[in-house]
């Protein structure tokens, strides 16, 4: 079957299998390999992408369900001010170590900060509960978010 959707601002028409996951479509058909496959069962958040602005585990989301909708991946964040600022802050704060979870953290954080530009730390921790990082211990990631928020407030 065919789906037509918007991926990172561009229209795409893709031939998919009916039970295919959004992750499979992005990585194998559209070659957008920035989105990572971690647990493949909605536990780790490495595969998070935005569907109509909402952060979704693409490994357990139906590709067919994205018909007519807008999907943003970590590749798309390169064209997004907030996405770029977060990426730079992750690098500066040491929020990236092995890097496998990073695309999922960045997409989740873009969605969270678009909805609430200044979340409290408990709100932030709760919003990130579905993203697992085994390297950083999370502190550097929270530091990166704090730096991004204060950077935006200074402008």
């Amino acid at each position: 079957m065919d789906v037509t959707l918007t991926v990172n601002g561009r229209q795409a028409q893709v031939e998919i299998e009916p039970a295919e996951t959004l992750l499979g479509m992005l990585r194998e058909r559209l070659r957008l390999t920035g989105t990572k496959e971690g647990c493949n069962e909605g536990e780790c958040g490495a595969c998070t992408v935005l569907v109509d602005g909402l952060p979704v585990d693409s490994c357990i989301y139906s590709a067919a369900a994205t018909s007519g909708r807008s999907v943003e991946t970590v590749e798309g964040l390169a064209d997004d001010d907030l996405g770029r600022e977060l990426q730079a802050a992750f690098v500066a704060a040491g929020g990236v170590q092995c890097g496998f979870c990073t695309p999922g953290f960045l997409t989740t954080l873009v969605a969270v900060l678009r909805e609430n530009p200044e979340p409290s730390e408990p709100e932030l921790r709760e919003a990130l509960a579905g993203n697992i990082c085994r390297c950083t211990g999370y502190s550097q990631i929270l530091d990166a978010v704090a730096a991004t928020i204060s950077g935006r407030n200074r402008r």
Partner: peptide, 26 residues
């Protein structure tokens, strides 16, 4: 029936279910 898929998509991947048809109602 397929809504958000957080259970159904996992059950499909694990081959716990193998329906002929998925009805997307989301």
């Amino acid at each position: 029936v397929l809504a958000g898929g957080t259970d159904v998509m996992i059950q499909l991947a694990r081959r716990e279910i193998a329906p002929e048809h998925l009805l997307h109602v989301e």
